[in-house]
Amino acid sequence: MSPPSPPPSSQDGLGGGLRKVARVVLLDPEDRILLLHGHEPDDPADDWWFTPGGGVEGDETREQAALRELAEETGITDVELGPVLWRRMCSFPFAGRRWDQDEWYYLARTTGTPGTAAGTAGPSLTELEKRSVAGARWWTCGELSETHETVYPRRLAGLLRRLLDEGPPARPEILDTEIV
């Protein structure tokens, strides 16, 4: 359940189709993953953690969308996008709407740990994101395994552990559909 990035359009799931989404599994040199902290715009207590990313806009590819969204949401631009790790269909309520999404998760690594920390937000957030993104944090796999906070996708700790132990899958893994 992550906040939508672009304003409502034909790709947002409201126009009868699935919203195409590109997400980034961004790892630093210590194998920590960057997650954004989001919440319902009018209820900060209804919160969760999620990977950077958002909807494909216009004629851009998913790869272009992933890099654009990462830059907009975090200010991080010095990354090379790797393979698609996972694909997930999801449907969730957010900001008074139902969002139906086809999400692709791309691997990316940084050579350093950018100063993105809790309480900060990306430099180019949409108005909706400004009302619903509370900050960002680097998480270890162990911290993800032990947290009682909501994280999307729900199995992220196990997926990250397998990625770190075995490397990227030969083909994107299809994750369970998540309907909230």
Rank of each mutant, 00 (worst) to 15 (best):
P3K: 00
P3Y: 01
S5D: 12
S5E: 09
P7T: 08
P8Q: 09
S10Q: 15
L14P: 00
G16F: 10
L18R: 14
R19A: 14
V21R: 01
V21S: 06
R23D: 13
R23Q: 12
V24N: 00
V25L: 11
L26E: 06
L27V: 03
D28V: 09
D28F: 07
D28Q: 07
R32V: 09
R32G: 01
I33D: 00
L34W: 11
H37D: 08
G38W: 05
G38N: 01
H39G: 06
E40L: 11
E40I: 03
D42Y: 12
D42L: 13
D43S: 10
P44C: 04
D46K: 06
D47F: 13
D47T: 03
W48E: 13
W48Q: 07
P52W: 06
E60N: 02
R62N: 08
Q64D: 14
A66G: 09
L70G: 01
G75I: 05
G75V: 11
V79K: 02
E80S: 12
L81K: 15
R87V: 02
R88C: 10
S91V: 12
F92G: 09
A95M: 06
R97C: 12
R97S: 05
Q101K: 15
D102F: 04
W104G: 02
Y105E: 11
Y106C: 02
R109N: 02
T111G: 15
T111Y: 08
T113Y: 09
P114N: 03
G115I: 03
G115A: 06
T116A: 14
T120I: 07
T120N: 00
T120R: 15
T120V: 04
G122D: 02
G122E: 06
T126S: 13
R131E: 14
R131S: 07
G135V: 06
A136Q: 13
W139L: 04
T140S: 07
C141A: 12
E146Y: 13
E146T: 14
H148P: 00
T150S: 11
T150H: 12
A157L: 09
A157P: 08
L159K: 00
R162E: 05
L163I: 02
L164Y: 04
E166V: 09
G167P: 10
P168G: 05
P169H: 02
P172D: 09
E173V: 06
L175R: 02
D176P: 05
E178L: 11
